[in-house]
């Protein structure tokens, strides 16, 4: 048997999302004979409960209303198709690539995010994936704050068979990153993946600490291809947008990884992230297995929601 494709995994992971959004929309549409305000109210409810967010929901509803008017749509059944098209459209407005930048080699991936979103796990999985693709990977234990964070990454380093550069707990994270870069240069590593401590985006002193790490990277690893990956928990609601906003300002993030999409959270916030914030979602975590971290593909995501 072949391994399940990304699409199948996402379908599995998103099965709840799919059932919720799709079934609810079907239910609504079937119970209406004509298109009226009440139908829109119910659509709004479905989207908001899927964490799509008030702003994006309103935008989507307005877009659909406009099309219904312009195209003289009468049948409620057609609304679903319109919604699907509009979601796809606002998600693809962004011209950025939805792929992690690792070419040309060498490259560095710095992973940031608030506490408990799954940064270290994501790094472990990422390192494993790249290793299996035949890349030379090195990890840096930049979370010197949380108890046992270094040990956690050590465990992943064993599982994935990837080397790890680490200091003691409480060390200066920028110094660890510095050492990581030197090691990457000496060992001719393709991809250097750096962990950082979880930090709430509203704590300015912690966000400043990130700046120091950036300065080290800019100075010491100027030629490297840089990817700054923000990890977000799919269970997070509208705060995900805030997190992305602030990290974008301070850290100039280049991509987003959404974890824990295998829960019942609907992940609707992905739509808002792509359309409102213009930061591409690049990875999704759809399970706990080491190969459950997958590249994000917009078309598949939209299909998975509406299948």
């Amino acid at each position: 048997m072949s391994k399940p494709s990304f699409f199948e995994k996402l379908m599995g992971g998103l099965s709840k999302t799919r059932n919720e959004i799709s079934n609810k929309i079907d239910g609504i549409i079937n119970s209406y004979k004509k298109i009226d305000e009440e139908l829109f109210d119910e659509l709004e409810e479905v989207l908001v409960t899927a964490d799509v967010g008030v702003n994006t929901t309103m935008k989507l509803i307005d877009l659909i209303k406009l099309r219904i008017k312009n195209e003289k749509v009468k049948e409620p059944e057609e609304v679903k198709g319109l919604l699907k098209e509009e979601i796809r459209k606002i998600m693809t407005e962004l011209s950025c690539e939805n792929q992690i930048k690792i070419e040309p080699s060498p490259s560095i991936i710095l992973v940031v995010g608030v506490n408990g979103v799954g940064k270290t796990t994501t790094i472990g999985k990422l390192a494993n994936n790249y290793k299996n693709q035949g890349k030379k990977v090195l990890m840096v234990a930049g979370d010197t704050f949380r108890a046992a964070a270094i040990e956690q990454l050590e465990e992943w380093s064993k599982r994935a068979g990837v080397d790890l550069i680490s200091h003691k707990e409480g060390a200066d994270p920028a110094a660890v990153v510095y050492d990581g870069i030197q090691a990457a240069k000496a060992r001719k590593t393709d991809i250097l993946i750096c962990d950082t401590a979880g930090r709430l985006h509203n704590k300015s002193n912690l966000m400043n600490e990130l700046n120091k790490i950036f300065r080290v990277i800019d100075k010491e690893y100027e030629d490297a291809t840089k990817e700054i990956l923000l990890v977000l928990d799919a269970t997070t609601g509208q705060n995900a947008i805030n997190q992305a906003k602030v990290f974008k300002e301070v850290a100039n993030i280049t991509g987003i990884a959404i974890t824990k999409l295998d829960g019942t959270a609907k992940g609707g916030v992905i739509i808002a992230l792509q359309s409102e914030l213009k930061v591409p979602v690049k990875l999704v975590g759809v399970g706990e297995g080491i190969d459950d971290l997958q590249p994000f593909i917009i078309d598949d995501f939209v299909e998975a929601i509406f299948k």
Binding site: V114, T235, N239, A240, T264
Partner: peptide
């Protein structure tokens, strides 16, 4: 987590 979205109640 206080940042949990609509899923918190589920």
């Amino acid at each position: 987590d206080s940042m949990t979205g609509q899923d918190a109640v589920n």
